[in-house]
Design a protein around this nucleic acid. Structure first.
Lengths: 343, 343
DNA sequence: GTGAAAGCGCTAACAC
DNA sequence: GTGTTAGCGCTTTCAC
């Protein structure tokens, strides 16, 4: 926005109201030390004139800013869109501006975005993308965030990161175990897993839960095909093709997120394979469409909006000595896409 | 973020590099008037030290900011999430921070959010929510935006508003006409429309297109039931219930967005009504899941990501004397949810 | 090509 | 309770 002399300054309001700029400042920010009568008059004058304070001047002078940053992998992904909803909700409640950044699941871009937020002197940063298994991938981000925190910035993450900060941790292991147990209980013994990159901690954890379920049932997990593709609908389609080609005997496909599950359902339908009669399909996340699919999707519910809210609340709170952890439950939701294997 | 003396200032970099603060500033911003050798050295020192410029100080001094605002009704709605994807994409390309605001489809909150963006001195504002039919509902927003523009701010909207600014206009009328014609061509004569609030211009336009199709076919539109509910999946469910109860004879339901159509499909499935054999269903928007539903959804494709990109590009461009308009095509996509009515 | 210095609009001591 | 004023960290004339 270009400079322009038509913009009102606090001085203009002060002059108009017949007070000093300091009094005007106090009146508008609600600081004590002004008589209520004067304060109200100043506010009225400001409203009349249509004055809006310059956030940059305010932040520069006060050294604090009323804005926070949210880093997501991909805002078009319903998982992140819902988390964003939660963060925006708390932000609105607290009168905070929320800056949303995309990383495109690229740890390099993630770093750029974090730098940008730091440059913007946001008061808090919520990192919502999954962490990476390889700590090196986040080493740079970590050191930047540490400098940011040393300078008084607040950070919270959603998911397992190597960042040593407050975290909201979805119970990915428990969820993975629950959904796998569900399929095993139904009697499925020839199962395939469709997953995103195993560089992501989210995926490693969900997979660990699945392995636990197998172990718990006294079954061997090592022989179960785990097909890795993009963690998206398109990736789900690809994974489904591969599974059908390489493992035509499977009676159940467990996708490690709903997006992939949707892609899988789509391929099965196109092939005329009936779900759940011939093949069961389960997902993970419980994005809102999951219940409206045909068949409705058995999945693991993660309270994403809630997780977004909690993350920002954690970040806004006074810093603790040790990182805090909030565990978000992961509940199995059984719907129509899973059933016992064909006889 | 609290003030803290551990944060690096430009002066620190300048000192370290052995130049004046002015030279350091020029070097980092790429301004002319510095020898390339010195500039490069300063940049190197800054990188080494991990210096990040304070955006507030920069914006205050320069009077310009590298950030833009995006106003959406609801980021969890895939329609807006995709538009946001487009806006974020262009923002990232141009090195701009994007601040996303929720209005919750409330014209009052919309105003608050716009004020907040103005206070943040963003360089441009993209308003992505649908406009309201009643100009009074946007009068306040309009005057605020005009003041903002007078002060050098740039504005673009997506959809039909009464704001007198650059706009990206989806062809809602044409899309409505096309999808209605499709249903009429299939032979449907007992149709119901499920729609959101007719306070929104988007809906009025889509409805007008539908009416045109009826008129073009020499049919009477006035008797067609138009059921109004929330413009969401839940609203679609409600509308479906009402349509089934009050107009059990309908052979086709046209929803004015995909979200409602998904809700409708869900109710029909629950009732055991087969789509498209017994009832055809069509939507509008072509959100990404539309093609993966069962049955896949016949709908009208709006290039939402593209619309988001175009809107920000328009806003970033030099202001024109008259508002510019970019029309976004609305193409009928026929899938499996529509078929001729039962004999 | 480089540096000194005057602001940008606001907050927060500090005076009164 | 109110006013004066010194910065916040940077950009940008204007001198040299």
């Amino acid at each position: 926005m270009e400079r322009n002399r038509t913009t009102l300054r606090l001085q203009d309001v002060a002059t108009e109201a017949g007070v000093s700029i300091a009094t005007a400042s106090r009146s508008l920010s609600g600081a004590p030390g002004v008589s209520e009568a004067v304060a109200e008059r100043v506010r009225e004058v400001a409203r009349q004139m249509g004055y809006v304070a310059n956030v940059h001047a305010r932040s520069l002078a006060a050294g604090t800013s009323r804005s926070v940053g949210l880093v997501v992998h991909e805002i078009g992904d319903p998982y992140f869109a819902e988390i964003a909803t939660g963060v925006l909700r708390v932000g609105a409640r607290e009168g905070l501006t929320v800056q949303i950044c995309h990383t495109g699941r690229d740890s390099e871009r993630e770093l750029d975005q974090i730098r940008m937020l730091v440059a913007n002197r946001v008061g808090a940063i919520v990192v919502a993308g999954s962490g990476f298994v390889d700590p090196a991938l986040q080493a740079a981000a970590k050191s930047d965030l540490q400098a940011y925190r040393a300078a008084g910035g607040r950070v919270a993450v959603i998911g397992r990161h190597h960042l040593g900060v407050d975290a909201v941790l979805p119970d990915n292991v428990g969820g993975g175990r629950a959904v796998a147990e569900h399929l095993l209980d139904l009697g499925h013994r020839r199962m395939a897993i469709a997953t995103g990159s195993r560089q992501l901690t989210t995926i490693v954890d969900r997979l660990a839960g699945v392995a636990e379920a197998f172990a718990g049932a006294g079954l061997d997990f090592s022989g179960v095909p785990v097909v890795e593709a993009e963690f998206t609908r398109a990736g789900g389609k690809l994974a489904a093709e591969r599974i059908l080609a390489d493992h035509p005997e499977v009676t159940a496909v467990l996708a490690l997120n709903d997006d992939m599950a949707i892609g899988i359902l789509s391929v099965l339908r196109a092939r005329g394979i009936r779900v759940p009669e011939q093949v069961s399909v389960a997902g993970f996340d419980d994005v809102t469409v999951a219940q409206d699919l045909a068949p409705s999707l058995t999945t693991v519910r993660l309270p994403m909006v809630d997780m977004g809210e909690q993350a920002l609340e954690l970040a806004l709170r006074d810093p603790a000595v040790r990182p805090r952890r909030r565990v978000a439950g992961a509940d199995l939701v059984v719907r129509d896409s899973t059933a016992p294997p064909p006889a």
